[in-house]
Amino acid sequence: MHIPDGYLSPETCVLFGTVMIPIWTAASKAVKKTLSVRQVPFLAIGAAFSFVIMMFNVPIPGGSTGHAVGGVLVAVLLGPWAACIAVTVALVIQALLFGDGGITAIGANCFNMAFVLPFSGYYVYKFISSGSQASSGRRVIAAGAGAYVGICMAALCTGIEFGLQPLLYHRANGQALYSPYGLNVAVPTMVLAHLVVFGWVEVIVTALVVKYLQKQNAVFFEGGRS
């Protein structure tokens, strides 16, 4: 899901960077309103948590393993705006310090994983779980469904971003200058892989974690955050 440098044209990178600026500004304002000064370390540690989720490998059918992105889980626990900042911080650290995901593609990566993923997943969760008790089983299903929708929506956006590259940026002889596959290949490849495999990893992790937290500390699900 992390787009490296060189897959997207500079114009696309600038576009997504520009799109993300008002989102980050709105997220900062929303978080300032809902989180007190006391919770600044909470945000930092929440960002570290969203980074660390990717270190947990989950066994999946076929003997292989996969890891979750955890964006929807963080959104369910912190609220979508705080999740946007937490995932952005994790993505910045991954790109800048570990070369995982591009620096020039940071706007696109944040759009997919820090905006589309937590927001779409969170609102699906809110819709399904509305009116339910903090310890209700419906919340577990809602979190799983949100995680699945969130990751698939993010994959769809990534596929569209890849697929538009050869259409918009190519030489006169048709040679692609960036990501080489059009929408007809990039979108199904990205979406199918997430519908069939990675989406389920996200569902398993998010739903089970919500289930455990309901048992241990149901306070996380009482009242709304941001």
């Binding site: 947990f56 398993i204 089970l208 241990q216």
Partner: peptide, 12 residues
């Protein structure tokens, strides 16, 4: 794995 992620969140 899920229990450990939840536990990590509690520690967080």
């Amino acid at each position: 794995v899920a229990w450990n992620i939840a536990n990590t969140w509690n520690r967080t």
